[in-house]
Computed example of a mutant assay.
Amino acid sequence: MKTNLQIIADHYAASARQDVVGMMLDVSPDVAWTEMAGFPCAGTWTGVDQVIDKVFKVLGSEWEAYTFSLDQLIDGGDQIVGVGSYQGTYRKTGKAMQARVTHVWRLAGGKIVGFEQFTDTLLVAQAMRG
């Protein structure tokens, strides 16, 4: 069985490959996924389908070359913290953005059961303003 740290490392590796199926492999069917208020996909989404539809499809359609670069993983047992940066260009304005971000992951029984994002939403909003 994979460790919680390995589950999150695998999620980020799949993200780097733009492999949404791989990203969702260890996500619980009833995951609570929270994108920060002020972020384009703000809200708490429940379940894999909502996460894909309300987060990853939106980011993929509205942003060009949207990526997350992982700098550090912090192993807290059943909570893992990922620290890194977002970058991309908002298609409607052509403005680029780069913002630091922290992800807090909760795991239980070998599955991701919770996700919460913390980022500088002002930098994202500035790129989205026309």
Rank of each mutant, 00 (worst) to 15 (best):
H11P: 03
Y12K: 03
Y12D: 01
S15L: 12
A16S: 09
A16T: 11
A16M: 08
R17T: 06
Q18G: 10
V21D: 01
V21M: 01
G22S: 01
M24S: 02
M24N: 09
S28D: 06
S28G: 03
P29V: 08
P29F: 04
P29G: 04
P29E: 12
P29H: 05
P29T: 04
D30C: 11
T34C: 15
E35L: 11
E35K: 09
A37T: 07
G43Q: 07
G43S: 01
G43K: 09
T44K: 04
W45E: 00
W45M: 05
G47F: 07
V48A: 11
V48T: 14
Q50S: 12
I52E: 12
I52V: 15
I52R: 15
K54M: 05
F56M: 12
F56A: 08
F56S: 12
V58T: 01
V58D: 00
L59Y: 10
L59F: 14
G60M: 02
G60P: 00
G60A: 11
E62P: 00
E62V: 15
E62R: 13
W63K: 08
W63H: 05
W63Y: 08
E64H: 14
A65Q: 15
Y66I: 12
Y66M: 14
Y66P: 02
T67R: 10
S69L: 14
D71V: 07
I74W: 02
G76S: 07
G76R: 09
G77F: 03
G77Q: 02
I80G: 07
G82M: 04
V83Y: 09
V83A: 07
G84I: 08
G84T: 05
S85C: 13
S85G: 02
S85F: 13
S85R: 13
Y86N: 02
Q87A: 10
Q87N: 10
G88V: 06
G88L: 06
G88D: 06
T89E: 09
R91G: 10
K92F: 12
T93Q: 14
G94W: 12
K95N: 13
K95Y: 02
K95G: 08
K95R: 14
A96E: 14
A96I: 08
Q98E: 15
Q98L: 13
A99Q: 11
R100H: 13
